[in-house]
């Protein structure tokens, strides 16, 4: 059976989870993704993506203790699974392969 595929936003969110480590929860992931892509993703969009990544087995989640600042709700903290690490390595390999040799042919963007 082939491994589940991964979309562009899924990959971006998965990389944010990997980068944030123990601090990977919705708000931090959203800020990281929005800062890096310069696109203001909604809270719902990020959670839908995180949910999809969890369904595919690329991340796992657990609830923190309830926090007053969240109206007594818990944070849902995400962690990269072994399967998630594999898919990131594969994405990195593919990206390096398809970008190989392109660098010198792209001119810097002029203002």
């Amino acid at each position: 059976m082939s491994a589940p595929s991964i979309g562009k936003l899924e990959l971006t969110v998965l990389l944010a989870v990997a980068r944030l480590g123990d601090e990977a929860y919705g708000l931090a992931v959203r800020q990281d993704v929005s800062d890096r892509t310069r696109h203001d993703y909604s809270v719902g969009a990020v959670y839908t993506t995180l949910q999809r990544l969890e369904d595919k087995g690329f991340v796992s989640s657990r609830a923190s203790v309830p926090l007053p600042v969240r109206g007594g709700r818990s944070r849902r903290q995400f962690k990269l699974t072994a399967s998630g690490q594999r898919v990131l390595r594969e994405a990195q390999r593919v990206a390096a392969s398809v970008w190989a040799g392109v660098g010198t042919t792209i001119r810097p963007e002029t203002a």
């Binding site: 919705g26 809270v43 959670y47 600042v69 969240r70």
Partner: peptide
């Protein structure tokens, strides 16, 4: 419920 609470909790936290 888990999804909903995570979303609403994040909204509350960012609101603060």
């Amino acid at each position: 419920q888990e999804f909903r609470d995570a979303v609403i909790g994040d909204l509350a936290e960012e609101f603060a």
